[in-house]
């Protein structure tokens, strides 16, 4: 099965082609606010390099966050159009889960994935070594103490991925790299599309405040 992965939850946007267990090709860009313009040309380049046709793709996986609201919408909307146009299934993959999946399977510790969420908060989620979710993505205050992490993982040994935090065991992979399309595509190959729709995992509400509107005169009897 040929899977196209798309990941746009952070400033870094990436696309990847995966066939079976093999990562065939990946490309990324780091130009701010340009996911919408950069992704399709990157994808065109990958397909041309490998001699794959557009219609040879069997499935699309897209990172659904949490992350930048606009970034997520660009990636998911593009993936939706591609899925509709190619007539292939679309699978939503958690962006933090994709980040956890990059960690070597030989490490038996729980994966605590931490990403900057702006507004002095972090997005945090916890995964088992086999990738199953222990604690769903949530936004927590940026001062992430060992005690706070312990409330999520209990007494089990853990490793922090995605961000370097003081006083915590952090994996020494490129923490700034963020989630990428390669892991999204690999995970998408094994997830059921119906159970994993491509809907953004915002975690946060829309932050819209209901105004105090005057009561309607039409609610009163006519005088």
């Amino acid at each position: 099965m040929r899977v196209l992965g798309i990941e746009t939850s952070s400033l870094r946007g990436s696309v990847a082609l995966v066939e079976g267990a093999r990562v065939v090709a990946t490309a990324h860009h780091e130009e701010p606010h340009r996911h919408g313009e950069r992704l399709l040309p990157l994808l065109d380049g990958l397909l041309a390099d490998r001699g794959w046709s557009r219609s040879s793709l069997d499935r699309i996986g897209v990172g659904v966050g949490p992350g930048s609201f606009t970034g997520l919408r660009v990636g998911i909307a593009l993936a939706t159009g591609l899925s509709l146009g190619l007539g292939v299934p679309l699978v939503g993959v958690g962006s933090l889960q994709a980040l956890a999946a990059r960690h070597p399977a030989s490490d038996p510790r729980l994966r605590v994935v931490v990403r900057d969420a702006r507004r002095n908060e972090h997005f945090v989620a916890v995964y088992d070594v086999d990738g199953s979710e222990r604690a769903e993505p949530q936004a927590v205050p940026q001062a992430l103490t060992p005690e706070r992490v312990r409330t999520l993982v209990g007494d089990e040994p853990f490793v922090v991925l995605g961000t370097l935090l003081p006083d915590l065991p952090c994996a020494d992979d490129e923490p700034s790299r963020g989630p990428d399309a390669e892991a999204v595509a690999r995970l998408a190959a094994h997830l059921a599309p119906d159970a994993h729709p491509a809907l953004p995992h915002y975690v946060r509400g829309p932050n819209a405040i209901r105004p105090h509107l005057p009561p309607s005169p039409l609610a009163l009897p006519r005088t």
Partner: peptide, 19 residues
């Protein structure tokens, strides 16, 4: 902007995929 981009991205993907 945030509303436009949804339609624009879907249309881009659709047009690309369907040639």
């Amino acid at each position: 902007s945030g509303a436009l981009l949804v339609g624009v991205q879907v249309a881009q993907g659709l047009a690309w995929a369907a040639h």
